[in-house]
Amino acid sequence: MNRQLRIANRKISHVPPLSRFGRSAVAGEGLYYWLTLFLLIPSFSKATELPMINLEGEAQGTTYHIKYRDERQRNFKKEIDSVLITIDKCLSTYQADSEISRFNRSEMHKFEWPYFYPVLKKSEVVFRETNGAFDPTVMPLVEAYGFGPKKIRLTEPINIDSLIQLVGFQKISFDSLSIRKLKKNIRLDFNGIAQGYSVDVVAEFLESKGIDRYMVEIGGEVRTKGQKGEGQVWTIGIENPLQPGKMLTTMKLVNRAMTTAGNYRNHYESNGQTFSHIINPKTGSMEQSSVLSVTVFAPDAITADGYDTAFFVMGLDATKRFLAKRKDLDVYIVYTGEDGQPKTFITEGLKN
């Protein structure tokens, strides 16, 4: 008999978060999004079914859950932990000696680890295709609003006009070997895309070992391949943004990735004002929108992760127009209608 396992990601207080590394404060996110996974654990009534390997751990200020089937029953936890630690050393703004932190303090940097350039390149693609709704140079605004590593809380208004001068992906130049600033004091924050990238790196590691049936989840970002069991697909739950901790719906995820952005988790109040982690890099303001959460489905997790907060910033109508030309992407958007009631928009690719 099958039974359900509910896995709710928790903040691990003793692990330095990567701005939760994947729900960053950019229009590229600062949210550590709690995605609830409903994973049906198969019975092993068929003698030919391979036992499931289950790995769990802590990384990047959050938890991970990885499931796969392997004829050789190999346990790759040690190797996966090593990969995730190395990604932190490259992309974590919470580590003062990471590659990205050292670049933020300098004017030019030659890449050391193989992770910086792919994330930078993908960021450029999403920045251009969304007309700047996603922009990893938003770090000065992220810190000013109190969502950076220092976790300050605003007591006085910030000078948006001054800070917005330090934002703009066009103010950096890079190739596959190095990156340099075209304007002083530009700083990067990959927290809106790096956790999705981490999921892809782990998925590709498993595939390099001959694993073709897996589910990789880090901090709520998910990618799957193959069937979970005989006649079974991976089933993932989407959290209700109006009732955090409760499932809104479930979706079948087949050879695809899924990530979510929302502003109902990572926020704080100061002097009667609510500050949200989702910042519009084009205006410098905290985003006020009818959109409550955006879940993006894409071929890989870095793509889904890059677009989810961009769509949040763009709003429902602009996102619909964008997706009319992008059949490789699907979305499940929860928003507040004109009557004040929650509504959903689902692309055709998910309705089947």
Rank of each mutant, 00 (worst) to 15 (best):
residue 1 M to G: 15
residue 4 Q to V: 15
residue 6 R to T: 02
residue 9 N to R: 05
residue 10 R to K: 14
residue 13 S to G: 01
residue 21 F to M: 09
residue 21 F to Q: 04
residue 23 R to G: 15
residue 27 A to W: 07
residue 28 G to M: 12
residue 28 G to I: 10
residue 28 G to Q: 12
residue 34 W to A: 10
residue 35 L to D: 09
residue 40 L to A: 05
residue 41 I to L: 13
residue 42 P to L: 07
residue 45 S to V: 08
residue 46 K to M: 12
residue 49 E to D: 11
residue 50 L to F: 12
residue 53 I to A: 12
residue 61 G to R: 04
residue 62 T to R: 07
residue 65 H to R: 12
residue 70 D to S: 00
residue 70 D to L: 03
residue 71 E to N: 10
residue 74 R to N: 11
residue 92 S to V: 02
residue 93 T to E: 08
residue 98 S to P: 03
residue 101 S to H: 01
residue 109 H to Y: 05
residue 110 K to T: 03
residue 110 K to E: 06
residue 113 W to T: 00
residue 113 W to C: 06
residue 118 P to N: 00
residue 121 K to Q: 06
residue 123 S to V: 05
residue 125 V to T: 01
residue 125 V to H: 01
residue 127 F to N: 10
residue 131 N to L: 12
residue 131 N to W: 10
residue 135 D to L: 10
residue 138 V to Y: 14
residue 138 V to I: 15
residue 144 A to C: 02
residue 145 Y to E: 08
residue 145 Y to M: 06
residue 148 G to H: 13
residue 149 P to N: 11
residue 149 P to M: 12
residue 155 T to I: 14
residue 156 E to R: 15
residue 156 E to W: 08
residue 157 P to I: 00
residue 160 I to R: 14
residue 162 S to M: 13
residue 166 L to A: 03
residue 171 K to G: 01
residue 179 I to T: 06
residue 185 N to M: 02
residue 190 F to W: 04
residue 190 F to H: 01
residue 200 D to P: 05
residue 203 A to T: 11
residue 207 E to I: 01
residue 212 D to Q: 01
residue 215 M to F: 15
residue 215 M to Q: 14
residue 215 M to A: 15
residue 217 E to R: 07
residue 218 I to D: 07
residue 222 V to Q: 08
residue 227 Q to G: 10
residue 231 G to Y: 13
residue 232 Q to Y: 14
residue 235 T to W: 13
residue 236 I to A: 09
residue 239 E to F: 00
residue 239 E to V: 01
residue 240 N to E: 06
residue 243 Q to S: 10
residue 244 P to F: 08
residue 248 L to F: 05
residue 252 K to W: 02
residue 254 V to N: 07
residue 256 R to V: 06
residue 257 A to V: 09
residue 276 S to Y: 14
residue 279 I to S: 13
residue 280 N to Y: 02
residue 282 K to D: 12
residue 282 K to C: 12
residue 285 S to R: 05
residue 290 S to F: 03
residue 292 L to N: 06
residue 294 V to P: 06
residue 294 V to W: 02
residue 309 T to R: 00
residue 310 A to F: 14
residue 311 F to W: 11
residue 314 M to R: 11
residue 316 L to T: 09
residue 318 A to E: 13
residue 320 K to Y: 03
residue 321 R to I: 06
residue 329 L to H: 07
residue 329 L to W: 03
residue 336 T to W: 01
residue 340 G to F: 06
residue 342 P to H: 10
residue 347 T to G: 03
residue 352 N to A: 15
